[in-house]
């Protein structure tokens, strides 16, 4: 039976863990709110850009932009977005599983572009082909941080290293739910088919075909940014839940340890009293 001192020490240790996990929980929920705000403030830009893109594309003659060109698929690329850090429950495992499941159904060869350390570590360990690896962008998700990723995707496609590029990430639903998704990134699906609306008639400078060179990469950036921000929000949400569970677990443990401690303390008191009493009794017999 552990001594009361041992139990006290353990209680102190678990209390520390509880405090740390509560703090991490609070940090994660603050970051979650910021990530949600980020997703929100990108929305006007994203909406307008796809709107304009549709108009410009509709005005192009038959000339198909290379980023829209469908090719027979012999090799695919997949961007897998995971986190650099752990302690977020099954967040990374869920995305990795979704990506793997998707890849296992493909007949074409696949090369991975990993964003985030966790995914990279996993796929490296399991012998997948990793073409490029990038760290997870900071909480700012600045263009300088993920511009290289978007460039790698586009040049990979234009140079025909990939005939199709997919994006695997966590789609944010709400603070308690995210869904792992695999989405086609390139070639960009025909936007004009996406929604029907009255198209404005514009003049262009330079010509519509050349404008697409500016617009399409910017649109790919939007898609990537959205995926990164949603992943970030999902990661933080997963961390909130995980840390909450850990803190609750710690609290429960403290409860049971405290009971154990009280029992041990009571036992030792009883023992001491018994010792004193039997001592006294023994003395009485002597007299």
């Amino acid at each position: 039976m552990p001594s009361t001192r041992d139990i006290r020490r353990r209680i102190r240790g678990v209390k520390n863990i509880e405090q740390i996990t509560r703090a991490m929980n609070m940090i994660a929920s603050a970051r979650l709110r910021r990530a949600q705000a980020k997703a929100e403030s990108a929305r006007p830009y994203a909406e307008r850009i796809s709107e304009i893109l549709q108009d410009v594309e509709a005005s192009c003659a038959n000339d198909r932009h290379p980023l829209l060109a469908q090719r027979p698929v012999t090799r695919i690329g997949m961007v897998v977005i995971t986190s650099d850090r752990g302690l977020c429950g099954a967040f990374n495992a869920i995305i990795i599983r979704e990506a793997e499941e998707f890849l296992s159904k493909q007949t074409a060869q696949a090369g991975l572009i990993t964003v985030g350390r966790k995914g990279h570590e996993y796929f490296e360990r399991h012998g997948a082909t990793i073409d490029r690896q990038f760290p997870q962008p900071s909480r700012e998700v600045a263009l300088e941080e993920f511009g290289a990723t978007s460039k790698a995707v586009m040049t990979g496609y234009l140079e025909r290293r990939y005939d199709r590029v997919y994006l695997a990430y966590a789609q944010f639903v709400n603070a308690f739910k995210f869904v792992p998704v695999v989405q086609q990134l390139l070639p960009l699906e025909k936007l004009t088919a996406m929604e029907k609306r009255v198209r404005a008639l514009y003049q262009f400078e330079p010509a519509a075909e050349l404008l697409l060179d500016v617009l399409l990469p910017q649109y790919v950036e939007v898609l990537l940014y959205r995926a990164l921000v949603e992943s970030l929000a999902s990661e933080q949400a997963a961390r909130v839940v995980a840390m909450n569970a850990a803190a609750d677990g710690a609290e429960e443990m403290i409860g049971s340890l405290t009971r154990k401690y009280n029992r041990a303390r009571q036992a030792s008191i009883t023992r001491q009293i018994l010792e004193v009493m039997s001592g006294a009794e023994a003395l009485e017999h002597v007299h």
Partner: peptide, 19 residues
């Protein structure tokens, strides 16, 4: 700052997309 030179947008400009 347009790709093809600096330009000015005044009220009632025709619908236009500039790089």
């Amino acid at each position: 700052p347009g790709q093809e030179g600096v330009f000015e947008i005044l009220p009632d400009h025709a619908p236009f997309v500039f790089a």
